[in-house]
């Protein structure tokens, strides 16, 4: 009955390791601008890993690399031992059946209601009868506290609700790994607390791996088991929150303590201020 959800992807898998994702010496540029230059990191299986860094350091780009949306210029990205960048489109789709991703804006399909959004991956990948799909969808919506909102359209949801529905949708096919792209951005404290609680619950109740990309240090300090800080195209620091708080690196110190000026300058590179004012040119 289940076609792809329960089937193992037809890709070669190396022996299971303690790390579900391994990023090895990845280089990636957009035009002439290098985003990553030798990025190396490992995501431990069954844990919550935070990926942090100042804006524009390539956190979302990293997620796109891990999920195979883009390919690195050099280096390897292994998901469960499989090099993501070498897979064909179909192999990549098979691999993505084992991942779920929560987008910053939820990315719900706007022409169908909440129930159908959560049912979408099930209807696309399985031949399950409607009665069973209904039960699975209601279970997932109950888990995120939105069973009562099943008939609402995405336009009727608040930002926090949309993200919770997107989380229910991401869990619909029971993935091994959930990826969260900026899950706390633009949320009120109550919604933020709900998302933090859900991420923890999902991770440990379902025994999955979570990668949370964000720059909300406070929330991640509650949530993450391990954290990485990316800056300058590389990993600037890695470890627990306590370790990062006391880190010697200036950029890590600036990021963790929210300092306005430091290695990441307050001012965007510009010509001399007084010279520019006096020259009369823009």
């Amino acid at each position: 009955m289940l076609q792809s959800v329960t089937a193992q992807p037809e890709v070669a898998r190396s022996a299971a390791t303690d790390y579900i994702v391994e990023i090895r010496d990845v280089h990636y540029s957009v035009g002439n601008r290098p985003i990553f230059s030798g990025l190396t990191m490992s995501i431990p299986r069954g844990r919550i890993t935070a990926v942090m860094g100042p804006s524009g350091t390539g956190k979302t780009t990293l997620l796109r690399l891990v999920t195979g949306q883009i390919k690195p210029d050099r280096g390897q990205i292994l998901f469960d031992g499989v090099d993501v960048s070498r897979l064909s489109r179909q192999e990549l789709y098979d691999l993505r059946m084992r991942m779920g991703m929560l987008f910053q804006n939820g990315a719900l399909l706007t022409d169908i209601d909440v129930f159908e959004n959560v049912a979408f991956p099930l209807r696309e990948h399985t031949d399950l009868p409607d009665s069973l799909i209904r039960n699975i969808v209601l279970t997932k919506l109950q888990a995120v506290g939105l069973r009562g909102a099943a008939q609402l359209m995405p336009s009727e949801l608040s930002g926090g609700m949309a993200r919770r529905v997107a989380l229910a949708r991401a869990m619909a096919t029971d993935p091994e790994m959930l990826i969260y792209d900026e899950p706390f951005t633009g949320l009120d404290p109550i919604s933020m607390g709900m998302i933090v609680r859900l991420v923890r619950q999902m991770n440990y109740a379902l025994g999955i791996t979570s990668i949370v990309v964000s720059h909300d240090v406070e929330e991640l300090s509650i949530l993450a088991d391990t954290s990485y800080i990316i800056a300058g195209g590389k990993v600037a620091a890695a470890g627990t929150f306590v370790e990062l708080k006391d880190h010697a690196s200036e950029i890590v110190n600036q990021f963790m303590n929210g300092l306005a000026d430091g290695p990441v300058p307050f001012h965007y590179p510009a010509p001399d201020y007084y010279e520019q004012l006096l020259s009369g040119k823009s």
Partner: peptide
């Protein structure tokens, strides 16, 4: 992109 991530 969300569809692609759902292998659709």
């Amino acid at each position: 992109t969300a569809m692609e991530m759902m292998a659709v």
